[in-house]
Simulated assay, not measured.
Amino acid sequence: MSKAVEKELSETDTGQARTHQAGMLIPKSGEIMEFFPKLDRTIKNPRAVIDLVDETGKDWTFNFIYYNNKFFGGTRNEYRLTGMTDFIRSFNLKAGDFIVLERVSDRYSRIRYRRQHAPLKGGPIKLGRAGWRVVEFTADDD
């Protein structure tokens, strides 16, 4: 069984709100954070590269960043996933659509999307914060 996180896209995530933000906000606690790499919170704005493959075989690179400059004299204290604009535009994703990030193995992760009313295949869904959910897929969903 592989673990995945799912995010319902907002207008801000897709650019439909015509506002600027530095990536998607990630909840600071709970099972959602367990999906992402651990970052060294003792350094300013630590980050990790996340490489994923989509269903067409195309490679995508995103950045998982902890903007923690509040602890270094600034104002921010939040986790963000950045670098997703090209992916969102490539598939013409809109608010209400979903992205699914799945860790298949330590070396292989993939990204999928589904349209607003497409049914989710897989196991139980546990509600997360900020539009994120943890999803468990069974082997026959791959």
Rank of each mutant, 00 (worst) to 15 (best):
T138L: 11
G57V: 05
I43Y: 04
Q116K: 10
V5M: 04
Q116P: 01
T14N: 00
R112W: 06
G131P: 03
G73W: 05
D51A: 06
G15W: 06
A4H: 02
N77L: 12
R80S: 01
R89L: 14
E78L: 06
D141R: 08
F36R: 00
K28I: 11
G15I: 03
L120D: 10
F35E: 05
F98H: 05
E11D: 12
L81V: 01
E31C: 10
K7R: 11
G23V: 01
G122T: 07
V100L: 08
K126S: 14
P124A: 15
N92R: 12
E8R: 15
D59R: 14
R133I: 14
V53A: 05
Y66V: 05
E136W: 08
I65T: 07
V135H: 04
P119A: 03
F87W: 12
R114H: 04
D40G: 03
F98A: 11
I111Y: 09
K94Q: 03
E136D: 13
F87G: 02
E31V: 08
E34K: 13
T12L: 12
D13T: 04
S109H: 13
S29M: 11
V134Q: 13
Q116D: 06
A22P: 06
V100Q: 08
T19N: 09
R112N: 12
D140R: 15
V135A: 07
L52D: 00
I32W: 08
T12N: 13
F87T: 00
Q21P: 08
G128Q: 14
K121Y: 15
G131T: 02
E11W: 02
F64M: 01
Q16E: 15
Q116Y: 11
T138I: 13
L52H: 05
I111E: 02
A139D: 13
V104P: 09
P27I: 08
T85Q: 06
L93K: 03
R115W: 06
Y113Q: 04
F98Q: 06
R18I: 07
G73Q: 00
L39W: 03
D97V: 01
D40L: 05
E31L: 06
L93Q: 01
R110Q: 09
V104C: 10
D54R: 05
K3E: 12
P124M: 13
V5D: 00
K38F: 07
P27E: 04
